[in-house]
Amino acid sequence: MKDDELDFCILCGPLADAVELLDEGNAAAARAIMMRVLRRAQELFERDQEVK
């Protein structure tokens, strides 16, 4: 598996957890996870921009 594929998978797991938390009615915890994933995605994007 390539690094970029692994990075994508690492982001998907927490998002699945966030959906479960939303289903359970725990919006605050789901939001915290989504914000963390968003920050990580931004870091990955910025890293990719530096490489190009």
Rank of each mutant, 00 (worst) to 15 (best):
E46M: 10
V51T: 14
C9S: 11
E20R: 12
V37L: 00
K52P: 14
V51P: 11
A30C: 04
C9E: 12
L44W: 00
V19F: 09
M34D: 06
E24S: 06
R47S: 15
Q49S: 15
V51L: 15
D3T: 14
L22M: 05
E5Q: 11
R47M: 14
A18V: 07
I10C: 09
A29V: 02
R31G: 04
I33A: 03
M35D: 10
K52E: 15
R36G: 05
V19G: 06
A29P: 03
A27N: 02
V19I: 12
K52T: 14
A30W: 02
L38W: 01
F8R: 14
M35F: 07
L11N: 10
F45C: 09
I33D: 02
D48C: 13
L6G: 09
P14F: 04
G25N: 05
C9R: 08
L15D: 14
L6M: 11
P14K: 05
E50K: 15
L15N: 14
E46K: 06
R47D: 11
D48W: 14
M34F: 05
D17G: 06
N26F: 04
D23V: 05
E46Y: 09
L11Q: 13
R40S: 03
I33V: 03
F8P: 09
D48F: 13
D17N: 13
C9W: 10
D17T: 08
E20P: 07
R47Q: 10
C12G: 08
L15K: 14
R36I: 05
D4G: 12
D17P: 08
D48Q: 15
D48L: 15
E43H: 05
D48I: 14
L21F: 01
D4F: 10
L38R: 02
K2L: 12
L38M: 00
A32G: 05
A16Y: 11
A32N: 04
L38V: 00
R39L: 03
A27H: 01
L11D: 13
E46W: 09
Q42M: 02
D4I: 12
L6R: 12
E43G: 04
A29D: 04
F8L: 15
A28Q: 03
C12T: 11
I10M: 07
A32D: 09
A18I: 05
I10S: 10
R47V: 13
G25P: 02
A32L: 06
V37Y: 02
I10Q: 09
C9K: 11
M34E: 07
A28G: 00
M1K: 09
E50L: 14
L38D: 00
E24M: 07
E24T: 04
V19L: 10
L38G: 01
A27I: 04
N26R: 01
G25S: 04
A32H: 04
K52S: 15
M35E: 14
G25D: 01
D4Q: 08
R39W: 05
E24Q: 07
K52W: 15
A16H: 12
R39C: 03
I33F: 02
Q49V: 15
V19K: 13
R39Q: 07
E20M: 07
G13A: 11
E50P: 08
L38H: 03
C9G: 10
A16S: 11
K52D: 11
R40L: 05
E46L: 13
A29Y: 01
M1Y: 11
A18K: 03
I33L: 06
V51E: 12
R39I: 01
V19S: 09
E20D: 07
M35I: 12
